[in-house]
Amino acid sequence: MSKESLATLNTNTLIGHTDRRGRAWHYKSEFQGERPNHYPGAIPVADVRERLFNWRAAARPVAVERPATEAEATHRDAAGNPVRWVVDPRRRAIVREEDHEGTVFGVFSADYVPHQYGEWLLENVEHILDDDLSIASAGVLREGAVAWVEVSVPDALRTPEGVEFRPNLLATTTLDGTLATTYKRTVTDVVCDNTRNVALAERGPQAKFRHSRYEKLGLLSARQALEVVYTTADAFAAEVARLCAVPVSEAQWSGFLDVWVPATDPQSGEKLTGSRKAVVDRRRSELDDLYRTDERAAPWRGTAHAVVAAVNTHEHHVRALAPGANRLQSNMRKMVNGAFEELDVRAWRTLEGVLQGS
């Protein structure tokens, strides 16, 4: 279950093109008041700015509590000793500018510069929006520490093999130091909102900007944005065609599961027992069910595309998370840092090894 409450997900995220794509899984009208966060068409830039990016981050001095004489003391510590606050010039705390008691996103060196969401995520994509590209989703989570804007095409594309998808341009950043400001291309399988790698042999193009005073914001051109989106579409369609052309027998699928979810201890080579065996059996059963019966993979059963789709879908929507983990945040982090791309590549290479050995 997400740490983000349903109220937060229904007010701090905006979901576009619902007349063509449907509602998000967390949709609850009772949490949205008079202003729904779902839009039948594109999300207006003004709404993203007003509803999500209507505040700025600020860098504040950090002070350290030091021993002091009675004359120097500004207060007393928990033990009653005289102490004083001493500012550390090498550190800055990142907070909301107008929030006097809010969350401290992080403490960084004096060179750290917070990338304002309105400038880095919105202004940098605003000028590329037209009939072909529009804002499909945007959000601010983790009490303001992470934000994104996703630009996409309104209508899904369809490959000759029957796979519907949307190419996207994702702009995202954080204020807690966990991620550089990133612009990258992604692909979403329409039936399940999985973000897929566009080429199993290499990473998709992306640009990253560190939170440093030496980094400067360079605006994307409309031509560059369209090129990113539509070359992504071509690459993904080619990937789907290639994977759908690779046959996978029942024995090969079983062999893939044996390698992907091994039933033996990697150190000793002994068969797993007890709770460890139960975890492996459950995961194997979940993958097999996706491969055979789920609409996100089953229509292409018997091909490499179904294998990769089953693995990707399992990681996005099914695989158990640690207690208290946030699936929405986890998926966003993996999408941006390339973990989903690496997963697709690893699944394909594992399958290649099984096919070559059979």
Rank of each mutant, 00 (worst) to 15 (best):
A63E: 06
A63N: 09
A63P: 09
A63W: 09
V64R: 14
V64E: 15
V64A: 13
E65A: 12
P67S: 14
T69I: 01
T69A: 02
T69Y: 03
T69L: 01
T69K: 05
T69R: 05
E70I: 14
A71Q: 12
A71D: 15
E72H: 12
T74M: 12
T74A: 15
T74S: 12
H75S: 10
H75Y: 14
R76M: 12
R76H: 14
D77L: 11
D77G: 04
A78D: 13
A79D: 15
G80V: 09
N81Y: 15
P82C: 10
P82V: 12
V83H: 08
V83Y: 08
R84M: 10
V86R: 15
V87D: 15
R90T: 08
R90W: 06
R91G: 03
R91F: 10
R92E: 06
R92G: 05
I94C: 03
I94V: 08
V95W: 08
V95M: 07
R96A: 06
R96N: 07
E97S: 12
E98S: 05
D99N: 05
D99Y: 13
D99E: 12
D99F: 05
E101N: 06
E101S: 08
G102W: 10
G102F: 05
T103H: 11
V104H: 05
V104D: 07
F105D: 08
F105N: 02
F105G: 01
F105H: 10
G106D: 08
G106N: 04
V107H: 01
V107R: 01
V107D: 01
F108N: 00
F108G: 00
S109V: 06
A110E: 08
A110M: 02
D111N: 02
D111F: 00
Y112R: 00
Y112W: 11
V113C: 04
P114T: 01
P114F: 02
P114N: 04
H115C: 13
Q116C: 00
Q116I: 03
Q116K: 03
W120K: 07
W120E: 00
L121T: 02
L122Y: 12
L122Q: 12
L122W: 09
L122K: 10
N124A: 11
V125C: 05
V125M: 03
E126K: 06
H127V: 06
I128E: 05
L129R: 02
L129V: 13
L129H: 06
D130G: 10
D131A: 15
D132H: 11
D132N: 11
L133E: 07
L133T: 05
L133Q: 14
S134K: 09
I135D: 05
I135S: 04
I135P: 01
A136Q: 15
S137V: 09
S137H: 11
S137Y: 14
A138Y: 03
A138Q: 08
A138H: 08
A138F: 11
V140P: 04
V140L: 14
V140T: 10
L141R: 10
L141M: 14
R142K: 15
R142W: 09
R142L: 11
E143R: 03
G144H: 08
V146F: 10
V146A: 12
V146P: 09
W148F: 09
W148E: 07
W148A: 03
V149I: 07
V149Y: 03
V149H: 04
E150L: 14
V151N: 02
S152Y: 04
